[in-house]
């Protein structure tokens, strides 16, 4: 935040009037539209303030961009079109939801793959560990279960 402020001061200067109408009172035809505006702004990143969304930023530029988004919504543009408009000017940095491109395959598909790999190794490991278990006869197993039951009472785990 400190750095963000310094940067904002450096880039925007000090004599600039703080327009900062974060909470502009835009007029909408319906609640759904208002909600759509809010959600769209929340997914767009302010450029000067480092890590704040357009919905929350008090930077001057963020105010201008909110105005743009509002106007384009009034013109009937879709969320996708509005996002594209901003991406064409500022790059993918403006969207908090990264696009799915070859460059982000690792990002989007990495975690599911990690999950599947984890599952695979867990199952393999368990298979390997269970070998001996099957060799217990019924009596031994019952005895073991009793012992464990006692043990179980002592502790949470």
């Amino acid at each position: 935040m400190i750095r963000a402020l310094l940067l904002a001061l450096m880039l925007l200067g000090t004599a600039m009037p703080v327009a900062a109408l974060t909470m502009d009172s835009y007029e909408f035809e319906s609640e759904a539209e208002r909600e759509r505006f809010r959600e769209l702004l929340a997914e767009l990143r302010c450029l000067v303030c480092q890590n704040e969304s357009l919905a929350d930023s008090q930077a001057d530029l963020a105010g201008d961009l909110r105005e743009q988004v509002y106007e384009q919504m009034q013109q009937g543009k879709t969320n996708g079109e509005i996002t594209e408009y901003l991406v064409a000017r500022y790059g993918d940095f403006v969207r908090y939801r990264p696009p799915v491109t070859p460059g982000t395959y690792l990002l989007w598909f990495g975690p599911p793959v990690i999950l599947l790999l984890g599952l695979f190794f867990a199952v393999r490991l368990l298979r390997g560990r269970t070998g001996q278990e099957q060799q217990l006869n019924e009596a031994q197993r019952r005895r073991a279960a009793e012992l464990l039951d006692e043990d179980d009472r002592g502790d949470g785990h």
């Binding site: 969207r95 908090y96 982000t104 690792l106 990002l107 989007w108 990690i114």
Partner: peptide, 26 residues
């Protein structure tokens, strides 16, 4: 996953692919 999302902008930039944001939707 959290590490990947947190550091991905850094990888992306270091690989010369530009700047990227990974935020709450992801």
């Amino acid at each position: 996953a959290v590490l990947l999302g947190t550091l991905y902008p850094l990888f992306y930039d270091a690989m010369g692919m530009g700047k990227l944001s990974v935020g709450f939707p992801w």
